[in-house]
């Protein structure tokens, strides 16, 4: 397991004092958050600070504790231990002041009302409402205003829920698996809307199990498994931290059928050598040295490629293979 402690940008050398001081730069401050369901520790002493302006992906397999964490962050679920503050206040207060907006993973809308009526209601509650036209455009709801909300498709419902979350222009936006019910096209549209919204420097935390969404939209990725943070950093940092690159080639006839463990393992940088059929895969902490040694050596190889670890590899190395068995065939 690799735990990467990301240095907080701008915190510099003054870090020690940071523990106690209430930093106004913190949008979200979670300390020692714990939630038990029977014997299961769904969230286990989780601490996380999110600075203003960050877009953070909360990544983890199903059952990792993402939704439970988000529910406590929003004050929908009482923690068994630990504290949560949003912009220096309890979650419920932040919601009542319209400082935090959220979109939950599921949930239908109020039966019997039209899209425009619901949006107008959300706008009427807001201290700093978004312009109506802008809200409709940003959420991609043009042409649906007169539609009854109980007669929308899953993707359209999701867009209305997104509109409700951003109607008051909250400083902090929390999205739990926002694209779970969407097809590929709808997901692209959704993230395009999100980009527009976050361009204004707002703080966003989104839970997802789509690695590519985390990679494409988050400035910081927090990976959780079994209710704990196992990695925290930018995508680049996580990849570096995972350390590895992969060197892959086809074994020529001269290499023989055996895996030749001694030879491959002894190459500089290599810590795992695997052979499947004619393909040899080397995991190396120093791809340059490995390739030089291969080139200089007498091994018979062809079609060599060097690949950077992707977030998938990082994720797998951190949360193990059970992740991919449970995340819906992604």
């Amino acid at each position: 397991m690799i735990a990467i402690q990301r240095p907080r940008p701008g915190a510099g050398n003054a870090a020690p004092a940071d523990e106690q001081s209430v930093s106004t730069d913190d949008a979200v401050r979670i300390q020692g958050l714990t939630k038990r369901f029977g014997a299961l520790r769904a969230v286990d002493a989780l601490s996380l600070d999110i600075r203003r302006g960050e877009t953070v992906a909360l990544l983890g397999p199903n059952g990792a504790g993402k939704t439970t964490t988000v529910s406590m962050l929003l004050g929908l679920l009482a923690p068994d231990g630990g504290t949560v503050s949003v912009l220096g206040m309890p979650p419920a207060a932040a919601i009542q002041r319209g400082r935090i907006g959220a979109m939950l993973q599921d949930g239908s809308l109020m039966p019997g009302v039209r899209v425009a009526e619901l949006l107008d209601y959300a706008l009427s509650l807001a201290a700093t409402p978004l312009a109506r036209e802008r809200l409709i455009a940003t959420a991609g709801l043009a042409g649906l205003e007169r539609r009854r909300v109980d007669r929308l498709s899953g993707g359209q419902t999701q867009r209305v829920r997104f509109a409700l979350a951003i109607a008051g222009q909250p400083d902090v936006l929390v999205l739990d698996e926002p694209t779970a019910a969407m097809d590929v096209e709808a997901r692209h549209e959704f993230w395009a809307s999100m980009r527009q919204y976050t361009a204004a420097g707002r703080t966003v935390l989104f839970a997802t199990h789509y690695l590519e969404e985390a990679e494409a939209f988050a400035s910081r990725v927090v990976i959780i498994a079994h209710g704990r943070i196992v990695a925290d950093g930018t995508v680049a940092e996580l990849k570096r931290g995972a350390g590895s690159r992969t060197v892959r080639f086809r074994a020529g006839d001269g290499m023989g059928d055996g895996t030749q463990p001694g030879v491959l393992d002894d190459l500089p940088g290599v810590y795992v050598a695997e052979r499947q059929g004619e393909y040899v895969t080397l995991k190396t902490s120093d791809a340059d040295a490995t390739v030089r040694a291969l080139a200089a050596g007498s091994l018979d190889w062809r079609d060599l490629e060097v690949r950077t670890a992707n977030l998938d590899d990082v994720f797998l190395s951190l949360v193990g293979n059970d992740a991919h068995n449970t995340n819906g065939g992604h």
Binding site: I95, A102, G107, S108, L109, L125, L164, A165, G168
Partner: peptide, 13 residues
């Protein structure tokens, strides 16, 4: 249907 839960996330008492 989960509407009341969403309503809890809007700034209304």
């Amino acid at each position: 249907v989960g509407w009341l839960r969403q309503l809890q996330l809007l700034p209304v008492s």
